[in-house]
Nucleic acid binder design. Structure first.
Ligand SMILES: [Mn+2]
Ligand SMILES: [Mn+2]
Ligand SMILES: [Mn+2]
Ligand SMILES: [Mn+2]
Lengths: 217, 217
DNA sequence: ATAATTTTTTAGATAAGACTAACTTTTTAT
DNA sequence: ATAAAAAGTTAGTCTTATCTAAAAAATTAT
C-alpha cells in the first residue's frame, strides 16, 4: 500500500500531532525523522497528493482521516510486534523498539491479526503505550507526567515517554518498571528535581527523568 | 548489511546454483527474480564489486564463499519464519511463503536466533526444505523426485519443489502432505504420468506433478 | 563456415528518496 | 517599522534499482 518511508513519515506526524497545537512544522518532522527539512517538504507534498495529509506551505502539516487511519495501522503493528518480542522471545524492553521499527512495515493484515490473537489481544505495549484495535480505536488512559505531581502525591507507573535504551536501562538499574508504585517524597522548586520512593527504595531524579514517566494516580 | 534487493538476488543465485552445472546465466536470474536481464547485469556487477559473486561477462555468475554465506543467512531466516507462521500462527503451508519473503529481510541476528530457539530449533521448513544452522551448515537428506521412481517403488514425501499456492492446494485437496507414504502403482512411458497410492486412496498425476515432489525411500 | 537466433551487455531514461546550496517567507528582535 | 534570524521551499544533484532500445557476443542452424 504505502512505502516504508511514507509509513514512517505518517507515524512521525501522528506522534507530533499529539503535542503540537496547530499543524506540525516541517522542522519538527525533520527532527523526528532524522532527515533534512527539504526532504520533508518533498515528502509531505507527496503525502498531500495522496490525500494522507493537509499541507499548507509555510504553515504546517496535519493528518487527514485517511492519513490518521494509515498511521494508526503502523502504530498498531509496531506495538503488537513489541509485545511479541518481549513476551514471546524474551527481549528486554529497551531492545524491542529498533526491531519493531522494521517489523511494522511487513505488509499483511492477516499476519498482524493472528499475532494479536496469539498474544491474546494485548491492550498496551511494553512501554505502556496503548495498542489501537483493528479499526484504529485506541483507549487512552488518564495519566500524568511524574514531573507534574507534587510532594506527597503517589501513583503507579503506566508508561514511559522516551524509549531509548539509555533511559530504559536507567530505570532497569533502579528496578523501576511499568506497574511500580511511585511516591514523591520531595520536589525542588529550583530545578524540578525530585526524591521519589519506589518499592521501599529512595532515588533522586532530575526533572528530565520525571518528564519522561507517566503516572496513573 | 545488504539491501533487500541484494539479498533477494543472492538467494535467487543460490537456488539456481543447485541446478545449474556451471555458472548461473543472466536470463535464469532474471526469470527467478522477475526482472529484465539488463537489471541483472547491473546487479551482478555490483555484487561482484562487493566480493559476493564471481561474474564473468557473457559466461555466468557463481556465489563466492562470502556470497554463499550471505545467501544461506537469508534462506535460514526465510525458512525459520515459515515455520513460525505455520506452527505458531496457524497459517497454511501455501500461505507462508509470501510473508516470509518479506520477513527474511529483517535485520537482526538476535531476532532470528531467538525465534529459532522458541521454535525448538526446527530442521525443516513446512515444505520439507532444510534450515541452515547459525553457521550455515545445512543437512541435505537423500531424496529423489517422485518422477524418478519406477512402478512398485514406494517412499515418504519429504519435500516439495514448487511452493506456489496452486500446487500446494492441489496436494491439500488430495490429503497429500509432508510425511505421506506414496506408492507408485503405475507409470506411463509415453508422458511420464503415474497412478499413485496415498493412504489407501489412488490418484492419477501428471509428470509435472511428479517432478515437484521429493521422496525419501 | 556463414547466417540466423538467442543471450548478454551497454547506453540512456525514469522514479523514489535523500542531500546541499540558494532563495523566500515568516517570526523575532531592536 | 525595519532588520536580523529562523523556518521553510526550490532547484539541482546523487544513489539505488528499475526499465527500453540498441549493440555485441555466444550459440545454434544451415
Ligand atoms: Mn519504521
Ligand atoms: Mn513502544
Ligand atoms: Mn525476499
Ligand atoms: Mn519453504
Amino acid at each position: 500500500m504505502y512505502s516504508k518511508s511514507e509509513e514512517n513519515y505518517l507515524k512521525a506526524i501522528y506522534h507530533l500531532e499529539a503535542i503540537a497545537k496547530h499543524g506540525v512544522s516541517t522542522n519538527a518532522i525533520a527532527g523526528e525523522m532524522e532527515t533534512k527539512p527539504s526532504s520533508v517538504t518533498d515528502m509531505v507534498k507527496k503525502l498531500a497528493d495522496k490525500g494522507l495529509v493537509n499541507y499548507v506551505k509555510y504553515k504546517g502539516t496535519t493528518l487527514t482521516e485517511k492519513g490518521k487511519k494509515a498511521a494508526l495501522g503502523v502504530v498498531r503493528k509496531h506495538r503488537i510486534w513489541e509485545v511479541f518480542l518481549l513476551e514471546t522471545l524474551d527481549f528486554q524492553w529497551d531492545e524491542v523498539h529498533d526491531i519493531a521499527e522494521q517489523l511494522e512495515h511487513i505488509k499483511s493484515q492477516e499476519l498482524i491479526n493472528r499475532l494479536d490473537k496469539f498474544l491474546d489481544y494485548p491492550d498496551y505495549d511494553p512501554h505502556g503505550d496503548p495498542i489501537p484495535d483493528k479499526n484504529g480505536n485506541i483507549k487512552s488512559a488518564e495519566k500524568k507526567l511524574l514531573a507534574e505531581l507534587k510532594k506527597g502525591n503517589q501513583g503507579q507507573l503506566v508508561g514511559v515517554r522516551e524509549t531509548s535504551p539509555d533511559f530504559l536501562q536507567f530505570l532497569d538499574k533502579r528496578s523501576i518498571a511499568i506497574g511500580s508504585k511511585i511516591k514523591v517524597l520531595g520536589k525542588e522548586f529550583f530545578d524540578g528535581s525530585m526524591v521519589i520512593q519506589v518499592q521501599g527504595e529512595q532515588f533522586f531524579i532530575s526533572k528530565k527523568i520525571a518528564e519522561n514517566l507517566y503516572i496513573h494516580i
